[in-house]
Computed example of a mutant assay.
Amino acid sequence: MVLAKTTLFDSDLQEAAQLYKALGHPARLQIMRYLAETQSCITGDISEELPLSRTTVNQHLAELKKAGLIQGHVEGKHTNYCLNPKKVKELKKISEAFMIEINVDDKICE
């Protein structure tokens, strides 16, 4: 039986890696930024805010939704997208804890 190499790491690192992977494209970061700036759910075409095709934007939205960072609710022909505050807070907590853990206090490796 072959195990995924990620299973060799603790669950906290696995979760952090999944969230960071979801944010691993500038378009996804821009979507997150846009949803945060609007402070509301967006109905309609987010692709108007990005220099990408609607299909490509939808693929990025799907990855963010899969990671739980955004929520999408279908209303008629449109989907309302907004940040998932609980997951975004969790991401912030994970990121802050990780950065504290790897803090190098401006030490320089030689």
Score class of each variant (00 low, 15 high):
Lys89Ala: 15
Leu29Tyr: 02
Ala22Met: 01
Thr6Val: 13
Gly24Phe: 03
Pro85Gln: 02
Asp105Gly: 07
Glu90Arg: 13
Asn84His: 06
Lys92Glu: 01
Asn58Met: 14
Glu101Asn: 13
Lys92Ala: 02
Ala62Thr: 14
Cys41Arg: 06
Gly44Ile: 01
Ala67Asn: 07
Asp12Ser: 14
Arg54Asp: 12
Ala36Gly: 05
Thr55Val: 09
Ala22Asn: 00
Gln30Asn: 06
Lys77Val: 11
Gln71Asp: 12
Ile100Glu: 06
His25Gln: 05
Thr7Ile: 00
Lys89Leu: 15
Arg33His: 00
Val104Thr: 14
Glu110Ala: 07
Lys21Val: 13
Gln59Cys: 15
His60Cys: 11
Lys65Ala: 15
Leu8Gly: 08
Lys89Glu: 11
Ile108Ala: 07
Glu48Trp: 02
Ala97His: 01
Gly76Asn: 08
Glu75Ala: 14
Leu3Val: 12
Gly76Asp: 02
Gln39Lys: 15
Gln71Asn: 06
Asp105His: 08
Asn103Gln: 10
Val88Asn: 07
Met1Val: 09
Ala4Arg: 08
Met32Lys: 00
Leu3Phe: 09
Tyr34Gly: 00
Leu3Ile: 09
Leu19Tyr: 05
Ile108Trp: 06
Glu63Arg: 06
Lys87Asn: 08
Gln30Ser: 10
Thr79Met: 05
Asn84Cys: 09
Cys41Leu: 10
Leu29Arg: 04
Thr43Trp: 08
Leu23Met: 12
Met1Pro: 01
Arg28Ser: 08
Thr7Ala: 14
Lys21Pro: 00
Leu23Phe: 08
Tyr34Arg: 03
Leu3Gln: 07
Thr56Asn: 10
Gln14Met: 14
